[in-house]
Design a protein around this nucleic acid. Sequence first.
DNA 1: CTGAAAGCGCTTACAG
DNA 2: CTGAAAGCGCTTACAG
Lengths: 343, 343
Amino acid sequence: MSVTIKDIARIAGVSPSTVSRVVSNHPRISKETSRRVKEIMAEMDYHPNIMAKSLVSKTTKTLGILLPRPAEELFQNFFFGELIRGIVTQAARAGYDMLLTTVTSETTELETITRLVMGRRIDGILLLSSRTSDPIVGFLQEHQFPFVLIGRSDEFPDVLSIDNNNIQAAYDATNHFIAQGHTRIGFISGPPNLVVSQDRLHGYRKALKEHRLDIRPEWIMEGDLLQESGFRAMSFFMSLPERPTALVVFDDLLAFGVLRGLTELGYSVPADICLVSFNNIPLSELASTPISSIDIGTYQLGYTASQSLLRVVQDEPLNQKQIIIPHRLIVRESSISPTANRG
Amino acid sequence: MSVTIKDIARIAGVSPSTVSRVVSNHPRISKETSRRVKEIMAEMDYHPNIMAKSLVSKTTKTLGILLPRPAEELFQNFFFGELIRGIVTQAARAGYDMLLTTVTSETTELETITRLVMGRRIDGILLLSSRTSDPIVGFLQEHQFPFVLIGRSDEFPDVLSIDNNNIQAAYDATNHFIAQGHTRIGFISGPPNLVVSQDRLHGYRKALKEHRLDIRPEWIMEGDLLQESGFRAMSFFMSLPERPTALVVFDDLLAFGVLRGLTELGYSVPADICLVSFNNIPLSELASTPISSIDIGTYQLGYTASQSLLRVVQDEPLNQKQIIIPHRLIVRESSISPTANRG
DNA sequence: CTGAAAGCGCTTACAG
DNA sequence: CTGAAAGCGCTTACAG
């Protein structure tokens, strides 16, 4: 079988305790012993058994990542990829591994989490998307298990969380149109059970309200629609007697569908209707009409979430439990209209 | 602290061995004992310590996923997301967790793998991209550690691997143009150190050769270029005295860049030049000109890879060590040219 | 059908 | 600076 600490001890003529101390760079080991033991470890290709170490140290050096259910991530593939890249990079730097878990149905999701948390499989967990009244947040909170939310919890606002100011972001996007003179502005939302969808819708409403502009239900589309249905969604919008001249769209991929739908219907962006969306995926600027998008610092969200969770897990002091990653509107062609269509 | 098997044993008035057997549904435990112990476990919210179990069973019920280095994945974000979705789904079904690892530099990559493999952290590993003469493959092979390659190994062709027939796929894509009468066909490749890049280039050459068409070096672009440089790449191509009338592009995201570059230069697809690419990401059909793409069954690649590796890890019989996932050309507007530009 | 005992590979007070 | 011993929470022959 594989080489153990006992094998090394025997060959080096020391006790297993000593070998263990050499491995963990214990300060009170003589240079000479350390050198010799290390030499033998290298020779014999010794590698500590991580599970054994974990059992006694009661720490796994592993963080869990809970992937959202497919329904919730469908049109955010890019976003999650970038997020995970940020998370993994930071965790790797700290010597932590990441355990990827997914949940299939609502009924089994708590079981999945319980097994990992109570089974001491991980030291902390990252929740990649915030749903309204999420039972998982309640569970983790109750068990005082370290976790970080990417997004925010409406029920437990004190929870460790990394988020954008999505209300402000949508407010900014909407104002970007208002400042150009648009008065009929529509909104295409994301999955309604996500906090981020609600926040962005909120920011949109707030901007309209502050400028005493109409908030018409028929200008707001709840985004169960996929990219593929962009065509249908747009044909609805554009057939309205009073149709919007600008749209705030929840996500870049959605915006692609919208753009495509509009084009097929014979409308042109930005001449007939303007668009701004969120996330600023690399493809946004490669659309037929480059899409204006709010960059939310996706990589940084992941990176910071990882970092904060690691501080908690390692009992290091934490300045802020809620961190806001700044956003930035990247203006491209899709949102700059010729005066023609305004008002 | 948390509830252990001993606590349950004490309260149930049985031995720890019995509790252990109840947990693992050992057949020779009386219904009555099992019922009572299970009841107490539920009451006390007992969950087995996964690390302890793993230490004695010498199995971790965990598979590793090695993410390619950023440089290699840059323009394949979608592809990897979908792949991982397939992998995780299948693994979860079998009760396995996934450990996500990434490698930063070439010098540390073997260390990272060694730690996991020799440290008995995982039972098997999935390599998401196949590089030419990959030292990791050699290492795993030498240590007889279970792994599956998504792609193929040129050095170790017998290794467990799930791949497309990329030579045939590129051959098909090229023939799709030849059949339409194109004679000047270019190729935009992916990272040259990936086997898949080489295979696709190979298929392209093969098709041209068989039809005695010119293979001109200036029509082949080695794909270090990112999406952003589509413009520059295209201005090079289009300024050639004899420019291609059709392009086979390594990846859909790359195709977006190409499409955008062509548009900016005032060319139109497919009227001036045709495109076909690979991977068939959902966005392909939403491009300004819907992009023809070879669907390579990304989800199925991941799913099958997971499945095969699990068979090996669980010592189940395996019919085939090399599996080919079928590909399929999805023809859209970008590759169907009006006769004007042929020949 | 059940229990006592040994052991998985490590760490860490305690003692010297 | 180093070692002997106990223990982390589980499993599994062995014996009954």
